[in-house]
Nucleic acid binder design. Sequence first.
DNA 1: CAGTATCCTTTACGATACTG
DNA 2: CAGTATCGTAAAGGATACTG
Lengths: 126, 126
Amino acid sequence: MLPITVQAEEESGLCPVRAILVTVTGKWSSLILLALEDGPQRFSAIKRLIGDISQRVLTENLRALERDGYVRREVVPGSPIEVRYQLTPMGGDLLSRIIPLVTWATNHHAAVQAARNRYDADERVS
Amino acid sequence: MLPITVQAEEESGLCPVRAILVTVTGKWSSLILLALEDGPQRFSAIKRLIGDISQRVLTENLRALERDGYVRREVVPGSPIEVRYQLTPMGGDLLSRIIPLVTWATNHHAAVQAARNRYDADERVS
DNA sequence: CAGTATCCTTTACGATACTG
DNA sequence: CAGTATCGTAAAGGATACTG
């Protein structure tokens, strides 16, 4: 096993590593980080890239990512105003560990789908 | 940007890669996979390793992981019965992409905590 | 444009009790 | 031991309307 505490610490909330993973492994976080891979993007561009995320939830997630230091938010004054989001160095570093996972998923989604179909077929019988 | 569809496909549900990521990036999945890193474990051992997961939720998550082909469930008859869970080759392969992320989190949790403190302090002022 | 505010539904989860 | 069943709570998320 890795030298990390899988188990949460009872006294002081969560194991610090768990505290990071909770954010990173959220439903939207990795997708948002991915959307910033090629450089800064405006709010609306990120929303368009992901597609099925609501404005409210995107804002929430961007704030959480900003809070953790993965993303920087920059307001360009004007009317209408423009807000750019970009990866910080730490965010880029994190993304470089997420990308292998996404690549893996790209290469294995057929195998996973097959496994699901097999499982569901067996379920139907039993 | 990577050659994957960040955006969901409107017609047929989700982009297949997204369909994998939803499971993989769940709150518990990576922890369960991690608990199986060193070899097969019984249900109760996994539960003890993670600590703060309820029996119901652990069962649910193990079933999902089994369905996707990452984990194999094996019942050893007897009384009381024993159920072993172990990684499949595909599950082990997936875990090898998750571990760098966990290692990264281990090495950066202090920096993230500092970023959070900074952000929260600024919030208090504004 | 980039949010905020509000409402409402869905999902995830924990706790507890029970069983082969 | 390894579940299943049931209940209740809390968090996540979608939809819509409104604003500097």
